[in-house]
């Protein structure tokens, strides 16, 4: 790949291997995600999807090959990368309001001491608007439903104005309304030029929201345009031969 093409690449994996200590978790990953594109990370539980996201954040070391984020190393790129954790990993009793959670997305730009400016407040309000939860701004975060909490966390990421957005299983146990709101917000981010990496179990969502798919299970079983990569054969290989059902153009993995 030439330097010229690399310029629009938001995420480049070059024969990258990722390990916790001496234990390799992911090996030989290879692919590119450009600005304005979304890639779905698909694979069974324990395939290393979360680990890859952590590696892109620079929290897990790349032991061989290279991971390049926005043209620099993962650690150097953090300022322009936003991460959306799974909502159900957060303490629902924590005394924090929805708007405070969204404002956390501005912390990096605000710094430690300065008060949030009018511009920071406007960006946070706009981000909350985009996920359709403006009317819940004053509510305590923990009083929202799981899907709504996931949307608030996406709003926090949007408020950070990222060039690369990483989402860890954002659709798990999320109701239809919230799923729709999440997909819309992600689509708008893509339109505005952000690259998106989203891990998911849901192949239909990968079809719907993503241009590319990365099939993962310790190794890479395919990385490329969704239609080319999401084939029954490749899925069977990724999921180790677990049963697959085909329904029209939708592929459903019955056992993960």
């Amino acid at each position: 790949m030439t330097q010229q093409q690399d310029r629009t690449a938001a995420l480049v994996l070059e024969q990258a291997s990722v390990a916790y200590g001496h234990v390799p978790v992911l090996e030989e990953l290879h692919g590119t995600v450009r600005s304005g594109e979304a890639v779905a990370l698909i694979g069974p539980n324990g395939a290393g999807k979360s680990t890859l996201i952590k590696a892109i954040l620079g929290l897990v070391p790349t032991v061989r090959g290279r991971i390049e984020v926005l043209g620099v190393t993962p650690a150097q790129a953090r300022r322009d990368v936003a991460y959306v954790p799974q909502a159900d990993t957060l303490d629902p009793d924590f005394p924090v309001s929805v708007e405070q959670v969204v404002m956390m997305g501005r912390y990096r730009k605000i710094g430690w001491l300065r008060r949030p400016s009018a511009a920071d407040r406007a960006l946070a309000a706009e981000a909350l608007e985009r996920v359709g939860l403006s009317d819940r701004a004053k509510n305590r975060f923990g009083t929202l439903s799981g899907g709504q909490r996931q949307r608030v966390l996406l709003a926090r990421a949007i408020a950070a104005q990222p060039r690369l957005l990483l989402l860890d299983e954002p659709f798990n146990g999320v109701d239809a309304v919230s799923q729709h709101a999440l997909l819309e917000a992600i689509a708008l981010l893509k339109q505005q030029g952000a690259a998106v990496v989203v891990s998911t179990h849901d192949l239909a969502i990968a079809h719907l929201a993503c241009d590319e798919v990365c099939l993962l299970n310790r190794h890479q079983f395919g990385f490329g345009p969704t239609d080319e990569v999401l084939t029954p054969e490749r899925l069977r290989a990724t999921y180790g031969g677990h049963a697959l059902e085909l329904r029209g153009d939708r592929v459903i993995v019955t056992q993960t």
Partner: peptide
């Protein structure tokens, strides 16, 4: 601010540098 973020969301805090 870092304390609040770390307490609420340790992974998010690490991700934010």
């Amino acid at each position: 601010r870092p304390l609040m973020l770390r307490t609420f969301d340790p992974e998010g805090a690490a991700a934010a540098g």
